[in-house]
Computed example of a mutant assay.
Amino acid sequence: MSEAVSAVQGASASGFVDVAEAGLVGMVTIRGDLGDSDFAHAVWSVTHCGLPKKRGIAAGESDQLLWMSPDELLLVCAHEEAEARVQALSAALSGQHHLVVNVSDARAVFRVSGSGSAVREAMAKVTPADLRPRILGVGEVRRTRMAQVPAAICFDGEDQATIVCFRSVGTYVFDLLVRSSKPGSEVGHF
């Protein structure tokens, strides 16, 4: 079996913000009735995360759960643990309507970091999402587009954002972020 490699193999670049691929990240899509207490308990029994609120993130000991839609969560864990999480979640959710899929190798993850409002400046040039802090705050997730492709954005802090996209468009998203962060291209919106 071949060894897993990330979408752009750890590429990074610096402009008025820094753009870096996060490397291999474990990601498991979990679908089901988020309002069902049995569902919530089963997910907690494996992840040790409570269910996040709408557009929120819940952190456990080593995992994170991101709210992706009214019936979908994204579990973020160590890449090498993703398949074990799928097996454990499938067993815990047995008898309930659910879907649990390891999507780790189908996704790419990037981090954009910089000072002040620079991260929001760089990102706002390539997404139609409203990135004002009062609209998309720290610790919230937003599904949107990055230019022509779907992506999810999360602000981990005012100085760092995480972007998740399909692996097949990883190079496109990386290049897009690098171009949007060229020194001297700040627009002063935030």
Rank of each mutant, 00 (worst) to 15 (best):
C154Y: 00
A59F: 06
I57M: 14
K125F: 02
D130M: 05
T144C: 04
M146L: 13
P150G: 00
H97I: 06
D71G: 13
P133A: 09
T162V: 14
R143N: 08
P70R: 02
S69K: 10
E72A: 12
V76A: 04
L136E: 01
I163S: 04
C77S: 10
V100C: 05
V119D: 12
V101E: 13
S69I: 07
I57T: 15
G137A: 03
F110I: 02
R143G: 03
L66V: 04
V101Y: 01
Q96F: 07
I135Y: 07
T127F: 06
V126E: 03
V109D: 03
A82V: 07
R111T: 14
V149A: 09
G157P: 04
Q64C: 07
E121Y: 04
V164A: 08
P133W: 09
A108C: 10
E83K: 09
V103E: 09
A78T: 10
A129E: 15
E140F: 14
A58Q: 08
L136R: 01
V100W: 00
A118E: 13
F155W: 10
R142H: 14
C154S: 10
S69P: 12
E83G: 07
V164Y: 11
A106R: 14
P128G: 09
I163L: 15
V103S: 02
I57L: 14
A59M: 10
P150V: 00
T144Y: 03
D71H: 08
W67R: 01
L93W: 03
R120L: 06
M123R: 00
Q87V: 15
L73S: 01
V119K: 10
H97R: 13
S94K: 10
K125N: 02
R85N: 08
S94N: 13
V76Y: 01
F155M: 07
P133E: 11
L66T: 02
H79K: 05
E158A: 07
Q64N: 11
E80R: 13
M68S: 06
K53L: 10
S69A: 15
C49V: 06
F155N: 03
L131E: 05
P128R: 10
T127S: 15
D71V: 03
A59N: 09
R132A: 08
A91Y: 05
S115W: 05
C49M: 10
E83N: 14
F155R: 07
L99G: 11
L131C: 06
L89E: 00
D130F: 06
G114Q: 05
V141Q: 00
S69E: 13
G114T: 03
A108Y: 02
A92C: 05
A122C: 15
S90Q: 15
